[in-house]
Design a protein around this nucleic acid. Sequence first.
DNA 1: GTAACTACTTACCCAGAGGTAACTACTATA
DNA 2: TATAGTAGTTACCTCTGGGTAAGTAGTTAC
Lengths: 115, 115
Amino acid sequence: MNQKDQVCQYKLMASRDALEVIQGKWRIPIIIALTHGTKRFGEIQRDISDISPKMLSQELKALEMNKIVKRTLHDTMPVTTEYSLTPLGESMTNLLNEILNWGIHFREEVLKRDN
Amino acid sequence: MNQKDQVCQYKLMASRDALEVIQGKWRIPIIIALTHGTKRFGEIQRDISDISPKMLSQELKALEMNKIVKRTLHDTMPVTTEYSLTPLGESMTNLLNEILNWGIHFREEVLKRDN
DNA sequence: GTAACTACTTACCCAGAGGTAACTACTATA
DNA sequence: TATAGTAGTTACCTCTGGGTAAGTAGTTAC
């Protein structure tokens, strides 16, 4: 295996680590919603209008386990729950921006072609 | 809907466009393999050692349809096929780099925590 | 008392993502 | 003649991501 191949293997490994965390239909949208500040369950659900409570609950738990999202219970009446990004979650800012930029670029390219 | 919400909705839309293209276990790895230059079917399969020919064939077709990858047939004996990135595929460089950077960062954070 | 809002959980179902194995068709080499 | 390498295709199976619908438990407002 030459050096170029080794670099490629290293990159493939790193991409798998990242993909494991961001894989799925809802995780990136949830993280994006939380970059706009701390939010409650219902607020995220309203932002991402077509997510079901089941999926939101499930994906928030997974993100919490990966230390991307922090869940805070407030001892108010009634009890409220707040979700926010951890420092690790906030470290995804550049990644999220590139996803957005490329998404916009891709849409423009597709429209150009179709007209 | 206030301005902050509108920005959030726009971002969510853009992320969905991008996610539709990069979703799945194999697409990002395939694109990464091709950033190291034009490759043949068997070469990609050797780089990504645990992909089956079925999945590689299927995902290459999808990427070709989205104009991320170009397929070139060479009229040699025997016939060889080469895959390379299109300009649109090459425009993913920044996105791929951020995925890699964050993947490395994430792995470091996880290791820190586990020790 | 009843409706509505908070934040979920549980049960059930299905399409499709992905895996495995075998097969095709052609060429080159021993 | 047979084995190996080129580039896939096809059939079949399994598992799980995600959807739907309904239920839970507490509080507040009418």
